[in-house]
């Protein structure tokens, strides 16, 4: 069975190949399709822990402060994600409201909390089974976090509003920019296999 740990199947083209040991800053690429297989990912849980705490602070800011203030005909309306969802629910759009709240609020919050729990538990090398289950959830959840798409949507909505409304950007708008940057350049860049390799390294004491 130990031999299997020296093998890797490319998740893009399913080519079976041997793993190699990487030095700092080296990247392993697939011999068939050129997709990045894994990076030298020592301490990856510490990285995700730090990034998730930063992202969580931004996420709390995004949800406390309004993203923007819109003044139409002298009336001021503030935009926050949860207020937006509650309006949808009030109007009876339960399907749209629930999917939006899952994508923009529940999924990112759970993802960040799970990364933080994984980071803390793995540091003390406890809770092997919890970390294993959380990792499976984390990999599945990553498909459903769409705050980057939401950011573009805000820009599109702005164009529609510019004609008849005065718009003032608030704290959350800038927090959202940083959150999306953090998400795209870091959390989305970490491959599932890097997380699992490190899990294996921490809990089973086997170096690949």
């Amino acid at each position: 069975m130990e031999d299997l740990d020296h093998l890797i199947i490319c998740r893009h083209c399913q080519t079976l190949q041997k793993k190699v040991t990487l030095k700092e800053n080296e990247v392993a690429k697939c011999s068939e399709c050129g997709e990045i297989l894994y990076k030298n990912a020592s301490m990856v849980f510490h990285k995700t822990l730090a990034l998730s705490i930063a992202a969580l602070i931004l996420f709390i800011l995004i949800n406390i402060f309004p993203i923007m203030e819109v003044i139409i005909a002298g009336q001021k309306n503030e935009l926050t994600i949860l207020q937006m969802v509650s309006r949808l629910f009030n109007e009876g759009f339960i399907v749209v409201g629930s999917i939006v709240v899952v994508i923009l609020f529940i999924a990112p919050l759970m993802l960040l909390l799970f990364f933080i729990i994984i980071g803390i538990l793995s540091h003390f090398k406890v809770g092997k089974n919890i970390v294993r289950k959380l990792l499976i959830l984390v990999v599945a959840l990553r498909n459903w976090v769409m705050l980057d798409v939401f950011f573009i949507s805000i820009l599109v909505a702005l164009v529609k509003l510019f004609g008849y409304a005065k718009i003032i950007f608030d704290v959350s708008f800038y927090a959202l920019i940083f959150f999306v940057a953090l998400d795209i350049f870091t959390l989305k860049n970490i491959k599932p296999i890097e997380l699992w390799n490190y899990y294996f390294e921490v809990y089973e004491n086997e170096k690949n």
């Binding site: 819109v70 139409i72 005909a73 935009l79 949808l88 999917i99 798409v149 949507s153 409304a165």
Partner: peptide
């Protein structure tokens, strides 16, 4: 895939923000 959500989010934003008597 996720990028087709743009229109839904735009609708959600507009519904959340444009809420005055006349419009």
């Amino acid at each position: 895939g996720p990028w087709s959500m743009i229109d839904v989010f735009v609708v959600a934003i507009l519904v959340g923000v444009v809420h005055v008597h006349s419009i």
